[in-house]
Simulated assay, not measured.
Amino acid sequence: MQLLNFTKDKAKPVLNYNSIFTTYNKIIKTETPTNFGFIYVEANGLVGRHEAPVPQLFIVIEGEGWVQGKSDEKVKLQMGEAVLWEKGESHVCGSQKGFTAIVIQSVELQI
């Protein structure tokens, strides 16, 4: 499990296109088919333990929750924070308050 951070303070300024007060965080670059989706976990919700069928990038965009990889240690995540699970990696996630996350799945993730 690789923890990542996409919060605003990690973004780089956009200097092209006469942009003003704009920053950007690249998430991934792929050359193979990629699935992008939202997942909504309600208060006291849980996504049960399973193995990632392909590498999965999980980015919290609202609310807060937790993830677990192979260990029993719960790692808290909030808006802008992310986790990358490798293919076959067992994981589980949940939340007491609820969260929304973007899930990106592809056989090739270049972060």
Rank of each mutant, 00 (worst) to 15 (best):
Q110W: 01
K87D: 01
L57T: 07
G80L: 04
V103F: 06
V60S: 05
W85R: 06
K29Y: 05
V83E: 07
V54S: 07
P33I: 12
N5H: 11
K76L: 12
G63V: 04
E62L: 12
S71A: 07
Q68V: 02
G80P: 05
T7S: 12
T32M: 10
S71H: 11
L84I: 09
F38V: 03
V103T: 12
G65M: 06
E42N: 15
H50K: 13
L15P: 00
K12G: 03
G48H: 08
T22I: 08
L46S: 01
L77D: 02
I104L: 12
W85S: 01
T23P: 01
I20P: 00
F58Q: 05
K74S: 07
E42H: 15
I102K: 05
S90E: 13
N16I: 13
I28F: 06
E86M: 11
P53F: 15
T30L: 07
N5I: 05
E108I: 03
M1T: 07
K29R: 14
G45Y: 01
N44A: 14
L109R: 08
N18F: 11
E86I: 05
N5L: 04
S71E: 12
V54R: 13
A82F: 09
I28R: 00
L4Q: 06
Q110H: 12
H91N: 09
I27K: 12
K12R: 13
L84R: 07
E86V: 03
V83M: 09
V83A: 15
Q78M: 03
V41L: 15
V103K: 09
K87E: 13
H91I: 10
L3E: 03
A43W: 10
T7E: 07
E62Q: 15
Q78C: 03
A43C: 02
